[in-house]
């Protein structure tokens, strides 16, 4: 079975459809949940979020199109895991999370898809370990201290590298895609 057929079965709520997505994407979904929850919560909590993601997929089974399910599940996994952290009273204050963008509303400057693509390229172009640090902090909401423990470096170094990543992302988002390469020289 391929994703197109599995999605057709899922849309019609027929056996095999949802199971196909669970078998294929449990590792992906639970990895996202684990990276957000794993240092403060239990494996049961990760399982709960993972199951919740697939139940949500079932409830919204008419919405995703073929080729979009993985991204949809990833977004669900991240938001569900972050919500669970918040419910547990975790402090989610991220390092200088705000970034100034030109114009009254960034949505009016570029489409969401264009913006996502720009962010993807910007983060992907970061050198290691800056990229991993950036993803751990701004995607998985891990603290500088947690990242420092994982990567065996002082939290201050993590913060320094995060600032470098933020500056680069800001340059790309504010100066435009045509300056993308220059920003990384």
């Amino acid at each position: 079975m391929n994703e197109k057929r599995a999605l057709a079965l899922l849309r019609e709520d027929r056996p095999g459809g949802l199971d196909w997505f669970i078998d294929k994407y449990t590792a992906y979904v639970s990895a996202i949940a684990w990276n957000i929850l794993g240092r403060t919560m239990t494996a049961q909590d990760v399982e709960e979020v993972t199951a919740d993601v697939f139940v949500t997929l079932w409830r919204n089974r008419t919405k995703p199109r073929s080729g979009q399910v993985k991204g949809y599940l990833g977004s669900l996994a991240r938001s569900r895991a972050i919500n669970k952290l918040r419910q547990a009273g975790a402090d989610l204050d991220l390092e200088d999370d705000g970034i100034a963008l030109p114009g009254p509303d960034p949505e009016t400057l570029v489409t969401v898809r264009e913006r996502d693509e720009t962010v993807r390229r910007a983060v992907g172009a970061m050198a290691e370990p800056d990229r991993e640090i950036f993803v751990r902090h701004y995607y998985y909401c891990q603290t500088a201290a947690e990242i420092g423990d994982l990567l065996h470096m002082p939290a201050a170094t993590v913060r320094q590298r995060l600032k470098r990543g933020r500056d680069r992302l800001r340059n790309i988002l504010t100066e435009g895609d045509e300056n993308y390469d220059r920003a990384y020289q």
Binding site: G98, I99, P104, R115, V119, V123
Partner: peptide, 11 residues
């Protein structure tokens, strides 16, 4: 306009 990096990273 201020955007959250964590929101920009959503997708």
């Amino acid at each position: 306009m201020i955007a959250r990096i964590s929101d920009l990273m959503e997708n």
